[in-house]
Nucleic acid binder design. Structure first.
Lengths: 129, 129
DNA sequence: GTCTTGACAAGAATCATTCTTAAGTGGTAT
DNA sequence: ATACCACTTAAGAATGATTCTTGTCAAGAC
């Protein structure tokens, strides 16, 4: 946790609570999920504070934001390159850790500089079947 | 075009204009792009009509909507399974037609019924480099 | 011709996210 | 310990994409 101390990054209680909630969290929560949880400890916390902190954490590379769910943004404390499996019904998201060798075919790669890729698998989860 | 005639699907001038704009369109336009274009021909057209039609066309399987751009939904007349390459700077989207053999590893596929997958490549386009 | 169904325009409503403002606070330098 | 300053916070307003509502209209079914 100490590794988070750096210039322009203050460890406020609100921020620590958000980080704690996210740490090791595999549920890919939305801003609202985070807000509802952290508000239990900090009843005066504002929604904007959640967004501010998420954006700051993302900038610093501590978390990443996912566009998997078209309805709302989701946040993932796992910043390593991995993929996702999403249930079309309940929208639950499961990590897929595997190193797929995918590359844009040369003839279609029109001078694009490819920096990364993300695979989204979609289907139906066991509960929704 | 005649193939679109079916029960509960009326070919109104507005709808035809939207379909014409989308047909063969490789730019993955947003609802606003479509609205701005079609309004040239139908100045009284409302934004809601664009959304209504896009949703209807999507339901009928004539177009698909993409969540690639976190800012706004984009629409694609190409409903065949393909992937996308997106420029992180200007947000332009290019189709990637290739059949990648990707599968969720057995040990992680916890009884999930996988129906499909979509690969998103991201990077910098020639213009933005 | 009348009925039914789907489509239209216009604008209000919704909802996630961002912005604004004023007041507060952590961490560094003093 | 104190003071300062950049970063944070809370609160609410603002934004912007999308959806919903309402009243009207048109096409095809009967």
């Amino acid at each position: 946790m100490e590794r988070y101390r750096e210039k322009g990054f203050k460890l406020t209680p609100q921020r620590i609570a958000i980080m704690k909630f996210l740490e090791g969290n595999k549920n890919h929560p939305s801003a609202e999920d985070i807000y509802l949880y952290v508000r239990k400890t900090f009843p005066t916390m504002s929604f904007a504070t959640v967004y501010n902190n998420l954006e700051t954490l993302r900038e610093k590379g501590h978390i990443s934001s996912l566009s998997i769910d078209p309805e709302r943004r989701r946040y993932d404390p796992d910043t390593s390159s991995h993929h996702h499996l999403i249930c079309l019904k309940c929208k639950m998201v499961v990590d897929v850790h595997a190193d797929f060798k995918v590359n844009v075919p040369e003839e279609q790669n029109t001078a694009f500089e490819v920096l990364g890729s993300h695979i989204e698998f979609y289907g139906t989860c066991p509960e929704c079947k």
